[in-house]
Write a protein that binds this DNA or RNA. Structure first.
Lengths: 149, 149
DNA sequence: ATTTTTGCTGGCGAAATGCAAGTAATAATT
DNA sequence: AATTATTACTTGCATTTCGCCAGCAAAAAT
């Protein structure tokens, strides 16, 4: 289940890891939608099958993009969190969204186009920063909540 | 063979198109390595199988990322060129390379690390610009060459 | 006229994906 | 304390995609 690198090209090597139908979707769900638990992922719009989800989470953990944690008050529910390596994928996701915005509306007109998209168009660096800050903040909040209550 | 969009999320929608093992590798080969013909691709480091290559080129053409052209002096060799939509993926590729550089060297130490990588680290916007300019220049050159000689 | 190159296509086994059902452990409810 | 519900998976099986290899026709080079 470990990565096979085709060559020493930095572009291709990244794709050897995350160039997959599901991996970046999972990272996006964590970063943008704050999903953490197995159940969170199964309830998503993208509807990933549980066996695939299980395998992909295992893989993401193996390569160090996420870590599996538990809360002291719950021995069952696993919480998957992005590592630095995982958060480092934020700019990749952002460029993908920008590309969608510019080049995909012709064949897929119903792509969302709200104020978040406008923020992203106006200042992608700030948007990336805000996303990462927000992720860290929420992570701290939920971690704290569980250890208190 | 056409795209199935899972939802209206701009992140996921981009991945519905290019979130694949091969598509971005092919785009990278065109942009960075100047590959244009079927044979060029088959001779790459990444060694894509011909049937897959054929299918992927067809798909990339369908979604408008590349176009298939011919030179007046050669009725056999097809030249695949990036469209604006295709060139628009440059920032995505660049962010992937940056991520590799930062986060993949621990599990894949032989990733190339020359002066191009340094240029990329120092100024990714300039790097992207240079890449696109270079692509257009070479495209013009080869197009010109064929119509002359 | 013959050989080589180019751009594919087709067959077939292997791997990845997707759907549905099942399970075991924990947590919540009564 | 007993029952029910939830969570995080696993298993089985059908379908799709991948990947190697061989072949092949049209065009180009010799």
């Amino acid at each position: 289940m470990d990565v096979k690198f085709k060559c020493n090209c930095p572009f291709t090597s990244a794709l050897d890891v995350v160039g997959d139908k599901w991996l970046l979707v999972i990272v996006k769900q964590m970063l943008i939608e704050g999903k953490e638990t197995f159940k969170d992922f199964t309830e998503s719009d993208e509807a990933i099958a549980t066996n695939i989800l299980s395998a992909k989470l295992k893989f993401l953990e193996e390569v160090g993009i996420i870590i599996k944690t538990q809360r002291p008050d719950n021995k069952k529910t696993n919480h998957y969190l992005l590592t630095q390596k995982g958060l480092g994928l934020t700019p990749v996701l952002i460029e993908l969204a920008i590309w969608s915005d510019k080049h995909l509306r012709d064949i897929h007109p119903s792509i969302v186009n709200g104020e978040a998209m406008e923020f992203l168009r106006n200042d992608k660096v700030a948007f990336a920063h805000a996303l990462e800050q927000n992720y860290r903040k929420n992570m701290a909040k939920t971690l704290n909540k569980s250890s208190v209550g």
